[in-house]
Structures are given as structure tokens and as C-alpha cells.
Design a protein around this nucleic acid. Structure first.
Length: 1072
RNA sequence: GCUCGGAUGGUGGAAUUGGUAGACACGUUGGACUUAAAAUCCAAUGAUCAGCAACGGUCGUGCGGGUUCAAGUCCCGCUCCGAGUACCA
């Protein structure tokens, strides 16, 4: 009876679905085991053979655990919000929900045909309101929380309010924004509700903050580093600028230390843990302030020059000029009054401040006067935002309406005059440049300082002679992405600002430079440059001929910097001379603290995570704004469903796509979404947030939802959580090392702190599967002709390699020429130069992708060879963690193996298994196999276990084994790998229930004990022959037996051996 | 640049962690069956030298050294390939 895999597989897939064979119970006396695959995004391209690799591995493990008596949770679902569907929607107008639904259907069908043991009753989709309502809910919990450093956990924001009202904020030890002002309990209690909200926002675990982003005005969107190529967008080639934007952020930095500490105990691959450690980047050092010696033109006290524009000034200046030339009537009237200095202060019109063009500004009194046109509520929101940013920069903003200016200019001027006289210079200490250094011991080696070009002080301290050079440099570096600045280490660039700082310990004058090797986003955006101890500083100093003082005893620094910490003595460093790294570090910190110029600090490189996306297809924030301040929608009104829009593009004003929704206002009386036309603060109808959440929102907690996927009361019940705890085995690609895996750990820790989950870590054990690469086929076109030359004949000719579809190549690398001609019209008349009448293609290993025509789909494999063959072949290809090329040709080996195994249970066309006692050889083969396969599964070495099965079946076939005693356990053994054939054989063996929970065979030593050993006999380390000897022989007996053998005598050829090494049970080596 | 991973026949990969290098497959070659092909089965297959013959010799795990009776495996110094990356001060 031949092996009809198609029938068998369809039959059992149907059986499993109908019987819900893999449905996990939330109540069970069995021990639990939770196996999870990383959340897939259902892409339109469907699966290729690389995708299921990890799913097959986890499925084998899940099935193995069921045989071992565990209650296994093995769910699957979709991370269904995402860019591709949105991109497709932009291009075609098709709603992303429809695209997503279609893709999921196709995905499911492909997954089903591979025979995975998923519990589909627990499927989740991040884009379903039933799911994202809980994502929104978690967001609200984060908003309602702050981080208490003393207790080292997140606490409710209401606790913080209590603290504030009873003792102010001076004693509160919280993770918060850098610039919080101190207040007493009385002051707090006197604050307005809005002021309180402003302050609390600085403490919340999710908060609004200004973030620097790569903004592409043409696309109306923010781009990731890798979406930018040579300073322009990858898509379209449009200009990209650095821009500050107000976005939601997550205070993940509060958890830096705990994320670091707890990772040690995780059973994860060391490289993955290393990359998280590096990402968090803990460094111990000191925060040091270098006072600024010279502000050019006496601008020592916080008064900036007239150039107050941000990084994008060069783009905005043109626009400002245009606006100056075309003032509105109201603006014209007011400017007439202001420009004459009638009010005693100088005003500028249409002036750039940061990324805004303000109508009028008095720089010396930091007063901005704006004249508004017709008021629209959404405009008002934007103005609020703008005022807030300007306030942060120290400006006061007052606004007038057109009618006021035109109708009553005197009253307007009066008000302006009032504001001008109210202005007070805020008291300030000595201004300086803050730097963080991990090497305070080298502080006397500082010979210059370097600021990031974006550093806020740059504009202020630059001398007039250097102004031009500095501006040019800033403009140049603003066009470079961080990635570019990082990748290019060869080019050393920078400009002297003309300013000097004072060394806090030596009092020396230190020149201040700017250079783009210093990044604004890290630490303070400035470094104290110690060229003798840091290679980048060294290169910079050499390039600009700056001094390189040597502060290391007996170290030659004429060629390169010396960055070693250990075994070095500090020299030429005043009171630090003669000390070691450790001693000098402590002493330097003490000295800095004594003069109030610095303090010891632990710095993390981990930055807070930006949580806003200017996209349509993501979770809406459950947020509306009252007076520009964010308000949460109450839990009971969730989910806040994504609105419909007519187009998925940003609005003309550059607002996110949700800005196009016409029904997107919040009625806080009725608690429902209403039309934008009803927007009216006086009726408690407010605008809703226009950003959506990023892709990682839904995927940071989904593993909890699977525990209790249908729960409508809670994201997962306490009972379910207590039983399933966390994921025992998590399989996925290493590309998620620092994104998904860090965010998930963060959210889990947060939920734990607030008592919402019972575990501190989401994933106990983690395995990274390697990528399956494609085997591209290359044809070679002779330069300038439509002639293709076979690979072996190219020699010195200049040819152009072209990707040919792998479907046209046979297993001997020969091209189907007819198919190739029909493939694309330009090849229809192509000529071919053949070798041995064949066209041989070249092969190249590359990532599988449509554009390289090297994609192999699992569908074809399943229909041609069956799912069991696909599963085993994917495992057989090589170690799970390793990247390896796919080669369909090799699959026949595995397929033949399954056929051969099938034959073991059959006698010609009939199923035939004998009930007799099996031979000792067969039992030995079986138990050898049990031992090896079990060990392999536990070590995730699936490739070697497939080989073991092959050896086993080869041996049993040779032994003509047909006994149930052997064949029944073998079926269970192979069931995790090839479940369909195993089920079929199991039922033929007379069982009427699924093999799924059949007890795993137990290895018994007694069947495999050997009495003899084939000893390899080596001479000078080289194996010459094999000698079978009883295992119980001792060292001396073995030596005696070996020395007496005629082959030994022949090898020695009369020489006397110098030494004989005998390792019983292993080897004999004769030296001499 | 930095961090991590890797390199073994024509190909994918094994190798009990220092003890027979190349298991198991693919491919190739030869043979059997067949009118023929496919399928199936059998045999050979790291390179090289020698030979009528073999339980023959030599070389061989990216390169150069070293430790050891013995090295793919351990140590030192390189080369090349891949992945990540936020120049982390």
C-alpha cells in the first residue's frame, strides 16, 4: 500500500479541527507548558518556506510536551496593525481592514496545511477592537502611574498627588523629566487644575514630550533611520529634516536597571542578552559642569542672539520673508506701532523661533505677540501646543484677534506694554556646559570640548567671527541622519565656536568646538574631550591640530589614544597624579563635588521610547485634549474605535491621517464620539488625539491575552494568569532582540508593579531561529547583446548577471530555455550560448524575496511531497539557530525516508504488523533512537534527530523488523515531527483516539548495552586499524592484546614503541 | 567604527566537547529492472600518488604559529563572510 500523503494529511487536519484536539484547558491537574511563536504580521505576499521554520520547531516541542503529559498552551494570532496594509490603502484606497482580513485568510490556510497543533480558539488580532480596547486600557494604566525610585516600582498617580498635597515634591524620589521645579505642599494646593496636570505629566510613565524626529515634509510623515538614504527619503527621494515634534513617550528608562538585572536569570541566547545589555548601556561616571568663559558680545545671561531659529531655519527663512512681504491688515497696523520702538523695546516681525515663525517678538523681554485670523477650534489646539513650546523656551506668548488690533489698537498696545514691564530676568547661576564622562580620572587630560551641532548652547556661545562657519556646519549636519553620522567614521569634521569654557579643577581655558561625532540625543549632547584617552577625541585633535596632553605614566600616545583602564597610572594631573584608574575616579568625583562642579552618576543609554505614529492603521489613543492638556477616556467607554477617513494620507496641513476624520471629537458628557462640527469647549466637546500607537503596542502584551482570550471583563483573568504564568518557550527571529523583547519585558514589569500580572518576566526560555535563505539563479547576459552565456563559458567576458525565476531551473542547475523566453517579453528573442547543449545557471545565496525570484512557497512543497516531508526537511536542513540556504532538490531524501518508514508497517499493499517478540537488534535500534531523539528535542537539535530517524528506519528495514513492540513506540517518537503519518499509522495499529497524548516511550539502558568496543588503534595520532576488544578489559590487558596483533607489528616494522597510551573504552595510541 | 555570530567534501550538514574527521542526506558516476522513461533497488564517491591487486602511501576542517601521546574542538595572532547598531563619552 503506497503512502498517499495528500489524503492522509487532509484527513487528519480535518479530524484535529473537528475534535479541537489541541484546545488547551485553563483548568487542569496536569503541569502546564506554554509554547509561543513570535507574533506574525500577515503580509500580502503569504508565507514562503522560511516563515514556518520556527513554527515547526515550536510545534515539535509542543507536541513532544503533550506526549510527556503536559497541558500545553500553543496559540497563534496576528499582529495585524501595520504599515504594509496602510501603504496598500494609500495606493488603492482599499480599507486596510479588508486587506488585512484577506491576508489573514490566506495565512491561516497556509498554516493549516502544515499541520500545526495551534489552539485556534484563542486566536487574537491586534486590530480588532475587542483586543485593542485592552491595549488602550494598558496605556491608561501607564498614564495613571509614576515610578517611585525608593520603592523601585511603579505606583498609582493618585499616590503622587497625595504626596504633593502633603509635602510638595522636594522629597519625592521619582523618575521624571529633567526640568521639574520644586514646590511646597501649599504651592501645590494653590496650583490650578491645569498647572497640576502640567506637572503630573512630567511624572507619568507615558507622557507628552518633544522628540527629535526625521521629518519628511513631502510625505508628511516621520521616517525611521533606515528609510533615509543619503539624507533623502528612500521612497520618493524627498528632503528629510530633523524636527522637534510633540509625541507620546514611554518612560522605559525608569526600568533600565531592572531590565538589566533580571535579564541575567533568563534562559535566552547569550548574544541576545548581550545586545539588550548594550542597548540599555549602563555606564558609571560623573556629570561635570564646565563654566562658559566667554559669551560673545556680552550675552552672558541667557539672552540669545537674534538667531533663535531651530535646525531647519534655512528652510523656514524663505517662508518668513514671504510672510513679511505679505502682512495681513491687522499685522500691518500693529507693525507700524511696534517698529518705531514706541514702547521702548525692539520688536522683530515674522521671526523664527525654533521651528515656528512668530508674528512679533521682543527678544530682550522674551515676549511673543501673535495676531490670529479667523478662529477654528483645531487651530486653537495647535496654537496651544505652539505656546507651550515657546513657553518652554522662555518666551511668553500673548495673542490678539484681528478685530482687536484693527478696532482697538490702543488697548492692544497697552496690554503689550504691561507685559513688557512685567518681564523679569530670571535668576541664573553660572551657565556652563554639562557633560557626562565615564572617565572622570582623565579630567586633567581635557584639551577641548565638543558639542553636538544641535546643542542648545551653540547659537548662544558662537563668536561673531565663527558664526558663518558654525551655521554652515549645522546646516550640513542637520541633513545627515544619525545612522549616516555613525557609519562614517573616516571623515572628521567640526568647527570651532570661538568660545571657551573653564576647566572646573585647573581653571584653564578650554576651547569649545562642535562636531557631529557627538550626538545630541545621548547624555547631555556634549563631551569633555580627552584626546590621549579616547580615539575619537584623539583623531579630532590630530585633525585640527589641537593639543594632546599625555596624562598616563609611561604610555606612548604618539600614534593612538590609550583607552585601557586597568594597570594605568595617572600622571600630570595635579592631585590625581600617581593614582590608579579606580582611585583617581573616586578622588576626581570628590573634588568636583567639593567645588560644586559635578557629581558621580550612573548613566543609561536607553532612551524613552516614542509611542506616537502619524499613521492611520494603528490603535487610536484613548485621549482627548482640554486646553491642550491630554485627558483619558474612562475605561468603561473603551474601545475607542478607529474612525473612517476618505483617504489614508496625512492632511494638507501635515496632520496625521486621523485629521481627515470628520467624526472624531469627544463628547465628554455623553461619552461618545461625535462629529467635529460639534467641537465646542463650552459644551464639553473636545478634539481627540490624531496620532495612533506604534506596532509594538499590541505585541507587548499579547502573550497574556492568549491565556484568557475571550475575557470581556479583564485583559486576562487572575485565575488564568496564575495557572499559565508566562511563556515557557518562545521562538522567533533575532531581529526583535532590542525592540519587541525589551518593550514586552518593560510592560510586563509595569503590569507586575501595579498588581495586574503575577510574573516579572514574560518569556522564560527563548530560541532564535535562523533565516532560511533563497538560492537565486543567475543567467549571464553578454554586455550590450541579448545573448545569454552558460556559466561555465563566461571566462573573461564581461557579462551582466540577471535573476531568473528559480521555478525555471531543474535540480542540475539547468535552465528551461523555453520557459525563460516566455517569462518576459524582452527575453523572447534572446540567444543562448550553451555548454554540452545545456544552459547552466549560477547560484547565489540571498534573502528570499520576490524581487530576486528565489521565493519557494510551502504550498507547492505540501502538494508535491506533503506537510510531513516539509516539516522534517525544514528541520533536516541544519541547526535551528543558524541561517541556511533552501534547496528544494534535497527534499527527496526526507520524502524517501517517510516512504521507507511507511513500508515498515506494510507488507506490499496491506498493513502488516506482527505481535511477536522483536529481535534484540531491533530493540537496540529502537532504544538507541529513543535516547538520541529525546536528547535532541530537549536541546533543540532537530536536524540531528531527523538523521537519527533515518538511521533507525534504515536499520529496521535491514532487520526486516515488523513487530508492534518496536513499531508502535516508533510512531509516537516521530509524531511530533511528522504528525499526519504518525496518526494514520497509530489508527492502523488499532487505536481509536489521536496519538497526540499517547505516552512517550521510555528509554531502557538494558537494550543498548554493549560487551565489546571497536578500538581505533592509532600510531603517532593517526588511526591505522580497528580492533574489537571486550569492554571489560583493563588498560594493561588492552595494551597486551594490541601489541600482540600482527597489524601492530607490521606498523611498527621492528621499531620499539616509546610510549603506549590506552584510554579504556575510547582509544589506543602508540607513539614511536 | 563598535557588538555578536560564522568558516568542515561538488552541496546542506555530523562529530559523544580533546580521542576513528566527513554520520545522515542531496548531487554525481556506474550497474540492475524496463522496448524506453519515470519510479525503485544495488554499488562507488574528500583530494592526491602508486598499483594487476590492498586491511597501501601522502595531504586534508579559512590562514600563520603554539600546547598535547592526540586538535575541527584549547591558547595566541590574522583573513574573509554574515547579522545588529542609537559614534553611548
Amino acid at each position: 500500500m503506497s503512502y498517499h500523503f495528500n489524503e492522509i494529511e487532509a484527513k487528519w487536519q480535518k479530524y484535529w479541527a473537528e475534535n479541537q484536539t489541541f484546545k488547551a484547558k485553563n483548568k487542569s491537574d496536569l503541569p502546564k507548558f506554554y509554547v509561543l511563536d513570535m507574533f506574525p504580521y500577515p503580509s500580502g505576499a503569504g508565507l514562503h518556506v522560511g516563515h514556518p521554520l520556527g513554527y515547526i520547531a515550536s510545534d515539535i516541542y509542543a507536541r513532544f510536551k503533550r506526549h510527556k503529559g503536559f497541558n500545553v498552551l500553543h496559540p497563534q494570532g496576528y499582529d495585524s496593525f501595520g504599515l504594509p496594509a496602510e501603504q496598500y490603502a494609500i495606493q488603492t484606497g482599499q480599507h486596510p481592514a479588508i486587506t488585512t482580513e484577506d491576508n489573514i485568510k490566506r495565512y491561516r490556510q497556509q498554516l493549516d496545511q502544515i499541520g500545526f497543533s495551534f489552539d485556534w480558539s484563542r486566536e487574537v488580532r491586534t486590530s480588532e477592537p475587542d483586543y485593542y480596547r485592552w491595549t488602550q486600557w494598558i496605556f491608561i494604566q501607564l498614564f495613571d502611574s509614576w515610578y517611585d525610585k525608593t520603592e523601585d516600582k511603579a505606583r498609582a498617580i493618585s499616590d503622587l498627588e497625595l504626596l504633593f498635597s502633603s509635602e510638595g515634591n522636594t522629597n519625592v524620589n521619582a523618575v521624571c523629566d529633567d526640568e521639574v521645579e520644586f514646590f511646597s505642599a501649599d504651592e501645590w494646593n494653590a496650583f490650578s487644575s491645569e498647572e497640576k496636570q502640567q506637572i503630573l505629566l512630567k511624572y507619568r510613565l507615558t507622557y507628552l514630550a518633544e522628540t527629535e524626529v526625521n521629518w519628511c515634509p513631502e510625505l508628511g510623515t516621520v521616517l525611521a533611520n533606515d528609510e533615509i538614504v543619503n539624507g533623502v527619503s528612500e521612497r520618493g527621494g524627498f528632503t528629510v529634516v530633523r524636527k522637534k515634534m510633540t509625541q507620546w513617550s514611554m518612560r522605559i528608562s525608569a526600568y533600565a536597571q531592572r531590565l538589566l538585572d533580571d535579564s541575567e536569570a533568563l534562559d535566552w541566547p547569550q548574544p541576545l542578552k548581550d545586545s539588550q545589555t548594550n542597548w540599555i548601556g549602563r555606564s558609571k561616571g560623573a556629570l561635570v559642569k564646565f563654566p562658559i568663559l566667554t559669551f560673545p558680545e556680552g550675552k552672558g545671561n541667557s539672552k540669545p542672539g537674534y538667531m533663535t531659529g531651530g535646525n531647519n531655519s534655512h528652510l523656514l527663512l524663505e517662508k518668513a520673508k514671504k510672510m513679511r512681504d505679505n502682512p495681513t491688515d491687522a499685522e500691518k497696523i500693529l507693525w507700524q506701532q511696534l517698529k518705531t520702538k514706541k514702547l521702548g523695546s525692539k520688536f522683530r516681525q515674522q521671526h523664527l523661533i525654533a521651528d515656528f515663525i512668530v508674528d512679533f517678538v521682543c527678544l530682550s523681554k522674551k515676549l511673543v505677540v501673535e495676531v490670529d485670523g479667523g478662529i477654528h477650534l483645531s487651530q486653537e489646539e495647535k496654537d496651544m501646543e505652539r505656546s507651550r513650546i515657546l513657553n518652554d523656551l522662555g518666551f511668553k506668548v500673548i495673542r490678539f484677534k484681528n478685530e482687536e488690533v484693527i478696532g482697538n489698537i490702543d488697548s492692544v498696545l497697552k496690554q503689550i506694554e504691561n507685559e513688557l514691564s512685567n518681564y523679569q530676568v530670571s535668576p541664573q547661576g553660572v551657565r556652563g556646559i554639562d557633560v557626562f564622562t565615564t572617565r572622570p580620572d582623565t579630567i586633567f587630560g581635557v584639551s577641548f570640548m565638543t558639542l553636538a551641532p544641535e546643542h542648545e548652547l551653540v547659537q548662544e556661545i558662537t563668536s561673531s567671527e565663527q558664526k558663518e562657519a558654525v551655521s554652515a556646519y549645522i546646516e550640513k549636519s542637520a541633513k545627515r541622519s544619525e545612522r549616516e553620522r555613525m557609519a562614517d567614521v573616516k571623515t572628521i569634521s567640526g568647527v570651532f565656536t570661538g568660545a571657551y569654557a573653564i576647566h572646573p579643577l585647573s581653571g584653564e581655558k578650554i576651547p569649545v568646538w562642535i562636531g557631529d561625532y557627538v550626538l545630541a540625543g545621548y547624555g547631555t549632547g556634549a563631551v569633555m574631550s580627552v584626546p590621549c584617552g579616547d580615539q575619537r577625541d584623539y583623531d579630532f585633535a590630530k585633525h585640527f591640530s589641537l593639543p594632546i596632553p599625555n596624562i598616563f605614566e609611561g604610555i606612548d600616545i604618539s600614534d593612538e589614544a590609550y583607552a585601557e583602564k586597568d594597570g594605568t597610572k595617572i600622571a600630570n594631573s595635579d592631585f590625581l597624579s600617581g593614582l590608579s584608574y579606580k582611585e583617581a575616579t573616586q578622588k576626581a568625583i570628590d573634588a568636583l563635588e567639593a567645588v560644586n562642579a559635578g557629581k558621580g552618576k550612573i548613566n543609561y543609554r536607553l532612551r524613552d521610547a516614542v509611542f506616537s505614529r502619524q499613521r492611520y492603521w494603528g490603535e487610536p489613543f484613548p485621549v482627548y485634549y482640554v486646553n491642550g492638556l491630554p485627558q483619558m477616556i474612562a475605561e468603561e467607554h473603551l474601545p475607542l474605535k478607529l474612525p473612517e477617513v476618505e483617504k489614508y494620507l496625512p492632511t494638507e496641513e501635515g496632520e496625521p491621517p486621523l485629521g481627515r476624520a470628520t467624526t472624531w471629537a469627544w463628547d465628554s458628557n455623553k461619552n461618545e464620539i461625535v462629529s467635529n462640527e460639534l467641537l465646542d469647549a463650552s459644551k464639553n466637546i473636545y478634539p481627540l488625539e490624531l496620532n495612533t500607537m506604534p506596532g509594538w503596542a499590541g505585541s507587548s502584551w499579547y502573550f497574556f491575552r492568549y491565556m484568557d482570550a475571550d475575557n470581556e471583563e479583564r485583559f486576562a483573568s487572575e485565575v488564568a494568569q496564575k495557572y499559565w504564568e508566562n511563556v515557557d518557550l518562545y521562538i522567533g527571529g533575532s531581529e526583535h532582540a532590542t525592540g519587541h523583547l525589551l518593550y514586552s519585558r518593560f510592560w510586563t514589569k509595569f503590569l507586575y508593579d501595579r498588581g495586574m500580572v503575577t510574573v516579572k518576566e514574560p518569556f522564560k526560555k527563548l530560541i532564535n531561529q535562523g533565516m532560511i535563505l533563497g538560492m537565486s539563479a543567475m543567467v549571464y547576459r553578454i554586455e550590450g547583446e541579448n545573448t545569454f552565456i552558460s556559466k561555465g563559458l563566461i571566462e573573461g567576458r564581461s557579462v551582466q548577471p540577471i535573476h531568473a525565476d528559480v521555478a525555471m531551473i531543474n535540480s542540475s542547475d539547468e535552465l528551461d530555455i523555453e520557459a525563460f523566453k516566455n517569462w518576459r517579453p524582452e527575453f523572447a528573442d534572446a540567444k543562448f550560448i550553451l555548454e554540452n547543449e545545456k544552459y547552466i545557471v549560477g547560484r547565489e545565496v540571498e534573502k528570499m524575496s520576490k524581487s530576486k525570484y528565489n521565493v519557494v512557497s510551502p504550498d507547492e512543497i505540501c502538494s508535491q511531497y506533503g506537510a510531513d516531508t516539509l516539516r522534517m526537511y525544514e528541520m533536516f536542513l541544519g541547526p535551528l539557530e543558524q541561517a541556511k540556504p533552501w534547496n528544494t532538490a534535497g527534499i527527496t531524501g526526507v520524502h524517501n525516508f517517510l516512504k521507507k518508514m511507511w513500508k515498515l508497517y506494510h507488507n506490499d499493499e496491506v498493513f502488516a504488523v506482527s505481535e511477536e517478540k522483536a529481535s534484540a537488534d531491533s530493540l537496540k535500534t529502537l532504544h538507541k533512537t529513543i535516547k538520541k531523539v529525546t536528547e535532541d528535542i530537549e536541546e533543540f537539535s532537530f536536524n540531528t534527530s531527523v538523521s537519527t530517524f533515518m538511521i533507525c528506519v534504515n536499520e529496521l528495514t535491514a532487520q526486516k523488523c515488523d513487530q508492534r513492540e518496536v513499531l508502535e513506540p516508533l510512531a509516537i517518537l516521530i509524531a511530533p515531527y511528522a504528525p499526519h503519518i504518525a496518526e494514520e499509522l497509530w489508527s492502523k495499529l488499532g487505536h481509536d483516539s489521536s496519538i497526540t497524548t499517547a505516552e512517550y516511550p521510555v528509554f531502557e539502558e538494558k537494550y543498548v548495552v554493549e560487551s565489546t568496543k571497536d578500538y581505533p588503534i592509532s600510531f603517532n595520532g593517526k588511526m591505522r586499524f580497528i580492533m574489537e576488544l571486550p569492554l571489560e578489559l583493563g588498560k594493561d590487558e588492552i595494551e597486551k592484546a594490541v601489541m600482540a596483533d600482527e597489524r601492530t607489528l607490521k606498523q611498527l616494522d621492528g621499531r620499539a614503541p616509546k610510549k603506549v597510551i590506552v584510554v579504556p573504552g575510547k582509544i589506543v595510541n602508540i607513539v614511536g
